[in-house]
Design a protein around this nucleic acid. Structure first.
Length: 417
RNA sequence: GCGCCGGUCGUAUAGCGGCAAUUACAGGAGACUGUAAAUCUCCCGACCAUUGGUCUACGCUGGUUCGAGUCCAGCCCGGCGCA
């Protein structure tokens, strides 16, 4: 790794895979383990960049699928890349659009990661789009996968598009994030093993194509990206569902490909996540950073950190903030519950975030009940601060050699509301 | 005074004689893990209850009918029109 991107391990946990380190990027350092704020459409929903910064966030992740559809990668490139475009001067990442192959395909119409059917389905009901688009979406899946790439329909207007590994990389070059991801297929945890294997092998072939595209980008728009100080780091993605042999096989394959780091993907059943991460990280080279994609439960984060992951992103703090679900050390609370209307204490007594220092539960409850925009902002500030602080404390605990103590202490009171 | 229209669950609405009764909002609760997500789901007359049942309800009082929120009569209240 050269040209502004490198990873250093500061301290390793004894007898476990966890470590604390620093990830150097052209836009600054990320002290790991670190929780990544999600800014899908080049905005962390409800937050201005200085508010993002004040939550302690070090890095923001945008999404190739969304930014390609709107406003289009060319505009983001013209703006100077995703960071400049959104006024965030810290490190950035982009997801490859691979997850949308799953969420718009297999998970089409479902609300959670619990999916009972394999990808490439057709026809399920959809809400939210109007007129003819809506009608079309009722009878056609949004995604069709083949070995060369993925055809999909825009969730906005139903128009048809195609991603290939090469195209994803090309778009991510234009978006210009510091860390970009290989284009993968995220399978349903309920897909059978035969399908998982096929998908994994496909993801593996796609990984090689992403790497090739990254190094030998043929597209004129992206050529100047290469070999300059603006080099982006490309992370390969390990899939394999909940099967140990598939996970390990995929980890070895991806390891050999000389990516700058790794993403661990998958839509997990709760029990499977820790194992899958450990199987993979026992194999992946320890000197390269590992990003766990889409994981953000409190217990999951402890498990992921001790099993050797360095960075994590998850929509839950910001999404749940907008639905009134707020985190405290004792567990999650729904601020719209009747009892909070007259509760004039802060959301969390010792929380140092802007929201808890300045506002009461009663005020937050009022903002949510009256659907005032400030409610979403204050809630997002708190939830993001909560997760970023949590992972930062894990880092400190690793450096102090007290991870287990911190974990046990935290989980002892968490959920006891 | 006469005429017309209207009075339905907190509010606003739907309701060709079989209805504890539509829809929306409000209210109560839950969900949310690489964001089709400021979203989605459930509950919302009372009392029992295992499926299910009993009661009280559509301004009031009567009537017609096996059966009335729905039809009829009178009354009360509101809006509009004419005097």
């Amino acid at each position: 790794m050269q040209n502004g991107f490198s990873f250093q391990i500061e301290k390793k946990m004894s007898r476990q895979l966890g470590r604390a380190g620093v990830l150097h990027t052209p836009h600054g350092n990320i002290e790991t383990p670190a929780f990544v704020a999600i800014g899908t459409k080049a905005t962390v929903k409800a937050l201005a960049p200085d508010q993002i910064k004040n939550t302690g966030a070090q890095v923001v992740l945008g999404n190739t699928y969304h930014l390609y559809l709107e406003p289009g990668e060319k505009i983001v490139k013209k703006a100077g890349g995703i960071g400049k475009f959104m006024g965030w001067n810290g490190p950035t990442m982009t997801d490859s659009g691979g997850f949308q192959v799953f969420s718009l395909g297999a998970a089409f119409g479902k609300r959670t990661s619990k999916v009972s059917q394999p990808p490439m389905l057709i026809g399920r009901k959809h809400r939210g789009l109007s007129g003819t688009t809506k009608e079309r979406m009722k009878t056609e899946a949004l995604v069709k996968i083949d070995d060369y790439g993925v055809n999909f329909r825009s969730y906005k207007d139903g128009s048809e598009h195609r991603f290939t590994p090469e195209r994803s990389i090309e778009i991510q070059h234009a978006l210009g994030a510091d860390i970009i991801f290989a284009f993968d297929e995220c399978t349903s945890p309920h897909a059978d093993k035969a399908y998982q294997r096929r998908a994994m092998e496909r993801t593996h072939r796609w990984a090689a194509r992403c790497l090739a595209a990254h190094i030998f980008d043929r597209h004129p728009m992206s050529i100047k990206n290469m070999g300059t100080e603006k080099k982006q780091a490309l992370f390969g993605i390990v899939q394999g569902g909940r099967y140990e042999d598939l996970r390990k096989e995929n980890a070895r394959a991806i390891w050999k490909m000389n990516f700058d780091g790794f993403g661990i993907g998958g839509s997990f059943e709760k029990e499977d996540m820790g194992n899958a991460v450990r199987w993979v990280n026992e194999i992946l080279p320890e000197e390269k950073p590992r990003h766990l994609l889409g994981i953000g439960g409190v217990a999951d984060l402890f498990s992921a950190v001790e099993n050797g992951c360095d960075t994590f992103d998850c929509v839950s703090p910001t999404r749940e903030a907008r639905t009134g679900s707020l985190y405290t050390k004792k567990g999650r609370v729904n601020i719209t519950n009747a009892r909070f209307r007259t509760d004039f204490s802060p959301l969390e007594k010792d929380c140092p975030c802007y929201t808890c220092i300045n506002f009461t539960r009663a005020y937050l409850a009022h903002l949510f009940r009256s659907q005032e925009l400030l409610g979403y902002t204050l809630a997002s500030i708190h939830n993001l601060s909560f997760f970023i602080g949590l992972v930062k404390n894990m880092r400190t605990a690793i450096l102090d050699g007290k991870f287990k103590k911190y974990k046990d202490g935290f989980l002892d009171t968490y959920g006891k509301i």
